[in-house]
Amino acid sequence: MDNKLNVSFLPTIEDYVYMRLERLGLKTSKEIRMFFRIIGIIGFMGGAAGFLNLRENIVQIICWILLMIAGLYMLSYYDIIRPSVERNRAVRFFNYNKRNICSKNIKLENGVLTAADELSSIRLTGESIYSIEETKNNIFIFYDIENFIYIPKRSITEKQKQLILEMK
């Protein structure tokens, strides 16, 4: 019982949206986000300073405004723009593919994790797992750098979560 796990869950729209958003968050490193924010601030403030102090002709004014817009875009890209776009895409995809979203069963026994639904089944041991990532709402089990199984935390207990995390 202690090293066994057997859970089933039917992904809801919230599960799917959180999965997509958190997967997006995992794909981007903190350094790149910080870089974008810094460049965005520099761009916006540079554009604002140029707009206020160097407005000899209309061409220069347009350039400074473009720079301010570009700065704002970069500043908000990873925090607002990309998550919003991803959320909208996730909601559209889920609503369009509702009939294909099926219940998933996750079993862990003797160090082998089995994830199965109506359309696929996969058995993973510690060696075949590439990495396991924990986010706010999900556990992601990657079996290569792109493909993964996700388990919403709402469907497992804290003890079960630890069992999964200890696989890698």
Binding site: I122, Y130, Y143, D144
Partner: peptide, 10 residues
């Protein structure tokens, strides 16, 4: 290529 190299299944 990186996906293939990281995968135990492909």
């Amino acid at each position: 290529e990186r996906i293939y190299e990281s995968s135990g299944f492909l």
